[in-house]
Amino acid sequence: MAEEILEGINPTRMELLALKKRQNLAVKGHSLLKEKRDALIKEFFDILDRVKGARSDVELTLNEAYEALTLAQIQLGDLAVQKTALSVKESVDVNVTSRNIMGVPVPLCDTEFDSRTLVDRGYGFSDTSIQLDNAAKKFEDSVKMIIELGEIEKTIFLLADEIESTKRRVNALEHVMIPKLENTVKSIDMRLQEMERENFVRLKMIRSTLEQNEAKNAAKTAFDKA
C-alpha cells in the first residue's frame, strides 16, 4: 500500500500542477476536519457529564412514581384509577426546536409546565385519595425529567454519529488520500526527470552523429580537393 498511486494520471507537467493543488487542498481539509473532530469530542464530553446522573435520577423518580401508583390502585382499585386518570388535564406543552453544535443540529426542548395544584388537575375529590394525588405529583415530576433526559440522550447520539463520520473522513484523508497524492506527485516528478535525462542523452547522440557526419564530410571535401 505504501507505493500506491492514483490511476489514470498522465505524467505531464499540467497534471503535476493540478495534483499539487489537490494535495494542498487535501492537507488543508485534513487539518480543518481534525479541528472539527476535536471540538466535537470536547462538546461530547461536556454533555456526557450532564447525562451521567440524569438517567439514574429518572429511574429513581419513576420507581417512586410507580410505587405511589400501585398504592393508589390498591386503595381505589385499578378501574377507578384509570377512570380518574382519563379526566386529568394536559399539563405539558413542549416545543422542540433545534440548536447547532459545530454544524450538528441537536434538539432543544422548550418545555412549559403548569405547576398546578390539586384543583387544577381536573379530577374530583370525592372518590380519590391522597395516594392518587401523590402518584400524580410524582408522574408530573418524572415527565419533566424524562423530557430533559431525552434531550440530552438524543444530543449525545447525534453528536456521536457526527464524530464517527468526521473521524472516518479524517482517517481516510490521513491514511489513504494524502499518501496516495504524495506518491503520485513523486512518481510523476521522477518520470518527468527521467524523460528530461532521456532527451538530454538523445540530444547528445544526435549532436555527436552530426559532428561525425560533418567531420566525415570535411575530410571528404578535403580529399576531393587534393
Binding site: 410507580y66 401508583l69 384509577v81 386518570a85 394536559e90 399539563s91 408522574f139 415527565v143
Partner: peptide, 8 residues
C-alpha cells in the same frame, strides 16, 4: 395510566 395522571 400513570402518565395520564401526570398530565400526558
Amino acid at each position: 395510566t400513570g402518565f395520564r395522571l401526570g398530565g400526558v
